[in-house]
Amino acid sequence: MIHEAHANGIKLVFREEGDTAAPPLLLLHGRTANHNDWNGFTQHFARRFHVFAPDLRGHGASDYPGSYDMHDMAEDVAALLDHLGVDRLTVVAHSLGAVVACLLAVARPDLVGRLVLEDPPPGRQLTDRPPIVEDGSTGFDWRMMHDTERQLVTPDPAWAKGLAGISAPTLVVSGTRSPFDPDVAARIPGAALVRIEAGHLVHVEARKEFLDAVDAFLDASHS
């Protein structure tokens, strides 16, 4: 089911699947994507979780407010979860969504019980990034691309520092052919690292291996 809610001053559209009595699980997409990036994955996780998959601000059918600080994106998600009455859940997040998930885990440890971070950008300055060239692509706000790129290339030092404060059990899934090295795994206390033969889109390029790694982590960290 597709729903919309007003949270943190904006409209957020989200998909909901699974038994409402099951433990909650949040799926956060990467940059330029939306909840449809998790097609098939929502059904997989809905077998045992109550699944929520929102469109982040500037993406899909959610609002394009013109301001795209990643801390605001994390506040959007927190406000949505508060609106839905979700008080503790598992978060599975890709790329930009993984940054948002980490910021959420730092700011609201009461909400985040477990973290799965798929190919997150590293907690250091990025080099050799090609410039963003706007084309005819739609479904996201190009201003979001420029704003988040600045934050990814030269991250706030508090971003890396905050990773050390994440207390939730964490799995980092890294693509061996990704441009991102998995340094986030070393920055989060006790985080597990699984490397999969894939590029940045691990869940797309190696679906089975990704789900096997995530399911094994969720089974092992179940409480």
Results as ranks from 00 to 15, higher is better:
His6Pro: 02
Ala7Met: 06
Lys11Phe: 10
Glu16Trp: 04
Asp19Gln: 11
Asp19Thr: 11
Ala22Ser: 13
Ala22Arg: 02
Pro23Thr: 13
Leu28Gly: 07
His29Trp: 10
Arg31Phe: 10
Thr32Cys: 07
Ala33Val: 05
His35Glu: 09
Asn36Leu: 14
Gly40Ser: 09
Phe45Asp: 08
Arg48Pro: 12
Ala53Lys: 06
Ala53Cys: 10
Asp55Ala: 13
Ala61Gln: 02
Ser62Thr: 03
Tyr64Asn: 00
Ser67Ile: 14
Asp72Phe: 14
Asp72Cys: 13
Met73Leu: 14
Ala74Ser: 14
Ala74Cys: 10
Glu75Asn: 11
Asp82Leu: 07
Val86Gln: 06
Leu89Ser: 13
Thr90Gly: 03
Val92Pro: 01
Ala93Ile: 06
Ala93Asp: 03
Val100Pro: 00
Val100Phe: 02
Cys102Met: 14
Leu103Gln: 14
Leu103Phe: 05
Arg108Tyr: 11
Pro109Arg: 15
Asp110His: 12
Pro121Tyr: 02
Pro121Ser: 04
Arg124Leu: 07
Pro130Tyr: 07
Ile132Val: 15
Ser137Trp: 00
Phe140Gly: 01
Arg143Pro: 00
Met145Arg: 11
His146Trp: 11
His146Met: 08
His146Arg: 11
Glu149Gln: 10
Glu149Ser: 07
Arg150Glu: 10
Thr154Cys: 05
Pro157Tyr: 07
Ala158Lys: 08
Ala158Ser: 06
Ala160Arg: 14
Gly162Gln: 00
Gly165Lys: 03
Ser167Leu: 03
Ser167His: 07
Pro169Gln: 01
Pro169Ile: 01
Pro169Leu: 00
Leu171Thr: 09
Thr176Ala: 05
Ser178Asp: 03
Ala185Lys: 09
Ile188Val: 15
Pro189Lys: 09
Ala192Val: 13
Leu193Ala: 13
Leu193Thr: 12
Ile196Glu: 05
Ala206Cys: 13
Arg207Ala: 13
Asp212Cys: 05
Phe217Asn: 03
Leu218Glu: 04
Ser221Glu: 03
Ser221Phe: 00
His222Cys: 07
